[in-house]
Simulated assay, not measured.
Amino acid sequence: MSNSMFISIPVLFNREAFQNDLIYWYNERKRDLPWRENQDPYRIWVSEIMLQQTQVDTVIPYFEQFMNRYPTVYDLAEANQQEVLKSWEGLGYYSRARNLHEAVREVVESYDGKVPGDKKELKKLKGIGSYTQGAILSIAFDQPEPAVDGNVMRVMSRVLQIEEDIAKPKTKKLFEDVVANVMSEEDPSSFNQGLMELGALICKPKNPQCQICPVQKHCAAFGQGIQAELPIKTKAKKQKKEAYFALVMIDPAGHYFIQKRPEEGLLANLWEFPLFSQAEFDQYALLNWFEFEYNVKLNVKSNNGQVKHIFSHVIWEIDIVVAELTSGEIPNIKGHWINQEDLKTYPFPNVQKKLMKQLLIN
C-alpha cells in the first residue's frame, strides 16, 4: 500500500451487497442496549461519550443511573459540576464529563435545548470530535456521516485490506473517507452501528470469528487468509512511571483531610488525599517539611501499603502515609476536614478509591 492518503475502493467490491448484508445482520443480532431504545440525540450523545475508552458492560449501569438523574439536557445543564463528577465516579477520563456538562449548557443557552443536527454547529460543542459527531448525526438524525473508531478501522482494514498504520492520527481521516464511500445513505444509522457491532462481537482484534461473519464474502483479508495480520498498528511508547506519597491525615476528632485538585489537567476538580512527588521528597523529608510548614506534629503509622494506577499515558505508584495530628492547631491548608461517612459524598478518582479500599475507610 502506498503512503498516499487516499484509498480507492476495489472495482469488484459490491457496496450495495455489503451494506445490505451488514444492516440485515445488525437488525437481526444487535444487542439490547439502553441507548438504542430510541433516537433521542441527547441519550445517544451521553452514551457515545461514556463509551469512549470504556467497555459496554461497564457503561450500561452508569448510563442508566446518569439518565435517571439527568433525563434531559435541562436537568444536566442545571446540575452542579461536582454532582456530575460524582455521578461519573468510577468511569474515569473525567474530562469527558466536564466537557459534556459544559457542552450541554451551551445547547440549552444557544440552541433552545435541542441538540443541533447540523454538522458545523455540532462540531462547535466542547468534547465532540469527528467520531462523536458522526455517531450522533447518523444514529440520531439519519445523516450519512462516518463514525470511525478503533472497531470500525479494524473491520474496514480487513474488509478492504487496508495496510495503513491505524496508530497514526492521519490514518483516521483516511478511514473516514473510506466509510463515507461505502456507507448506506438509506439507513446510515444501522450501517454505522452495524460496523461498530461487528467489530465488538465478530471482527475482534484477536481470533476474529470469520466463519460466522455476515460480510465474510466481501472481506479481502479473509479471502487472502491474512485477517490476523490486520490492522497494522505500531505499538505505543512505553508508559512512564511516577511515584507519589499520599498523605492521609486524621485529626483528633477522627476527620480526614481532603483537597480539590486544580481546575486544569489530569483528574481536574476531583478530590484527593494530598499527593507529593517522590522526585521531590523522601518520606522523612516530606514529613519534616510538612510539620515545619504547617506547625503541626504528626504521628505516622507504618505499613500502610501502596496502590498502583495505570492511566493511558502514565503509571502512578503511590505509597500511603497515614498520619495522626498529635499536637498543634489544625494546619491552615486549603481543603476540607470531613468524617468518614461524608467521604462518600465527594467525587474521587479511581486511584483515590483504590487508596481508600486499601485503608478500609470507604
Rank of each mutant, 00 (worst) to 15 (best):
S2K: 09
S4H: 13
M5D: 14
F6C: 13
F6D: 15
I7P: 01
I9R: 01
F13L: 02
N14Q: 15
R15P: 00
E16D: 08
L22T: 01
I23Q: 04
Y26K: 03
E28L: 15
R29G: 04
R31P: 01
P34G: 03
N38M: 06
P41Q: 01
R43H: 14
R43G: 10
R43N: 11
E48P: 00
E48W: 03
L51Q: 12
L51S: 11
V59N: 08
Y62A: 08
F63R: 02
F63Y: 15
F63S: 06
M67S: 09
T72G: 06
T72V: 03
D75R: 02
A77G: 01
E78P: 03
Q82T: 05
E89N: 08
L91V: 02
R96F: 08
R98M: 15
N99Q: 10
N99E: 04
N99M: 08
L100A: 10
H101Q: 10
H101V: 07
H101I: 11
E106H: 04
D112V: 02
G113Y: 07
K114R: 14
P116H: 08
K124V: 07
G127C: 05
I128T: 03
S130Q: 09
G134T: 00
A135W: 01
A135I: 01
I139Q: 00
F141D: 00
F141C: 00
D142P: 00
E145P: 00
G150M: 13
V152H: 04
R154K: 07
V155W: 00
V159H: 06
I162Y: 09
E164G: 14
P169W: 06
K170C: 10
K172N: 12
K173E: 15
K173F: 14
F175A: 05
D177K: 14
S184K: 02
S184F: 09
P188D: 00
P188V: 00
S190Y: 02
F191H: 07
F191L: 07
Q193C: 01
G199E: 03
I202N: 10
K204Q: 11
P205N: 06
Q211I: 13
P214S: 13
G225D: 04
E229T: 03
L230H: 06
L230V: 03
L230C: 04
I232M: 12
K233D: 12
K235R: 11
K237D: 15
Q239E: 14
K241V: 15
E242N: 09
Y244S: 04
L247A: 02
V248S: 05
I250Y: 07
H255I: 07
H255V: 07
E264K: 11
E264H: 06
L266W: 12
L266K: 09
L267V: 13
E272H: 12
S277E: 15
A279P: 00
D282G: 06
A285E: 12
L286C: 02
F292R: 15
F292G: 14
N295P: 05
V296Y: 06
V300M: 03
V300Y: 08
K301Q: 15
N303W: 03
K308D: 10
I310C: 10
S312N: 11
S312V: 08
I318W: 06
I318P: 01
I318N: 07
D319E: 14
E324T: 11
S327F: 05
N332L: 13
N332A: 14
G335Q: 13
I338F: 12
I338E: 10
N339H: 10
D342S: 08
K344M: 08
T345A: 13
T345M: 11
P349Q: 06
P349I: 06
V351Y: 15
K353L: 15
